[in-house]
């Protein structure tokens, strides 16, 4: 029932944005332009490497010599085979992990641990089951010491943004997968981070729900102007969402190639241009996936 409600309100929203016409489209891409290179980078990584040395077995080169510049307001997608260090990259930017070499800069300053300016949405979300939906969204605000009334109106605003107002007082286990994703999104947005780091957030969802969330994410991103780094293994998703797609290699994770996606927004998963870009990304990625699979097979043989 809730999904249908959501679908209806969503269609209404789509209708209104279509009426905006081309003007609306231009508004959605505020940062694209010839002078983009002059803008101070939001995030920059210089020669970043990260090795893991397990107690047993050989050390793993998760990331090797990553150089990356992300401009403010950019929607960057990172694709790569499983085990290529995509999540590690996000954790480094979030400050949940430290690089073994190189440096990660946010607005030109080195990262000193986690901070509310960079919020990561984990694949497993990490929503708190002992809190209601609203209390989950308020959590980060409470940590900041925000006053109760202010906190409540702020949470209400972001729950409205993700179309969950009716579920304020529900507990997490009462929600569907897509709704949980939206709670996680609202919880992260409420803190108003400059940077949103998303780790395969929609991997576990059915295609229909995922499409809806793509549209919503694109709309929210256009409204808030946040910088988003979105990790996925789905090339179509990357082409659908990103201004730019980075392909990582398999162990050690390096940047293999970079694809600019200059398509108008809002985009659509089925758009032939999106499919075309996805094909291009896939051609770069295929060899790496093979390597990843071979490594997994080899590990299996060892075991």
């Amino acid at each position: 029932m809730n999904l249908q409600n959501f679908g209806a309100s969503f269609r209404a929203m789509r209708g209104s944005s279509a009426e905006l016409g081309s003007g609306g489209l231009r508004m959605i891409e505020p940062h694209s332009g010839a002078h983009a290179s002059q803008i101070e980078p939001k995030i920059s990584l210089h020669g970043v490497s990260r090795n893991f040395v397990p107690e047993k077995g050989e050390p793993v080169d998760a990331l090797h010599d990553i150089n990356l510049v992300v401009r403010p307001g950019e929607f960057l997608c990172i694709v790569g085979p499983s085990g290529c260090g995509k999540s590690t990259l996000l954790h480094l930017i979030a400050g949940m992990d430290k690089p073994t070499a190189g440096e990660v800069l946010i607005h030109g300053r080195p990262v000193q641990g986690p901070g509310p300016d960079r919020i990561i949405i984990f694949q497993d979300l990490g929503l708190f089951p002992w809190l209601t939906v609203r209390e989950n969204v308020e959590f980060g605000l409470r940590m900041k010491g925000m006053k109760k009334a202010e906190m409540r109106s702020c949470a209400r605003h972001y729950l409205q943004l993700v179309h969950l107002s009716q579920f304020e007082e529900s507990y997490i286990h009462q929600l569907s997968g897509g709704m949980k994703q939206r709670v996680a999104l609202a919880r992260s947005l409420a803190i108003q981070p400059d940077v949103l780091l998303m780790d395969e957030p929609f991997a576990a969802l059915d295609a229909q729900t995922r499409d809806l969330l793509h549209d919503e994410l694109e709309r929210i991103w256009a409204e808030t102007g946040q910088t988003i780094i979105f990790v996925t293994h789905n090339v179509r998703e990357a082409a659908r969402l990103g201004d730019r797609v980075i392909v990582l290699t398999f162990r050690p994770g390096r940047i293999k190639s970079e694809i600019r996606v200059d398509l108008a927004r809002p985009r659509n998963m089925e758009d032939p241009n999106v499919v075309l870009v996805a094909g291009e990304v896939m051609s770069k990625l295929r060899g790496e996936i093979d390597k990843s699979l071979q490594s997994e097979l080899r590990n299996e043989e060892h075991a």
């Binding site: 979030a94 949940m96 986690p114 901070g115 509310p116 919020i119 990561i120 984990f122 497993d124 979300l125 990490g126 929503l127 708190f128 959590f139 980060g140 409470r142 940590m143 900041k144 919880r187 803190i191």
Partner: peptide, 21 residues
């Protein structure tokens, strides 16, 4: 689960807040 502590830290909880909340 580790994810709760990670999410808490990420949302800006200090050690005492992490413990109590």
């Amino acid at each position: 689960p580790r994810i709760y502590a990670m999410a808490g830290r990420n949302l800006g909880a200090g050690w005492a807040q992490l413990l109590f909340f």
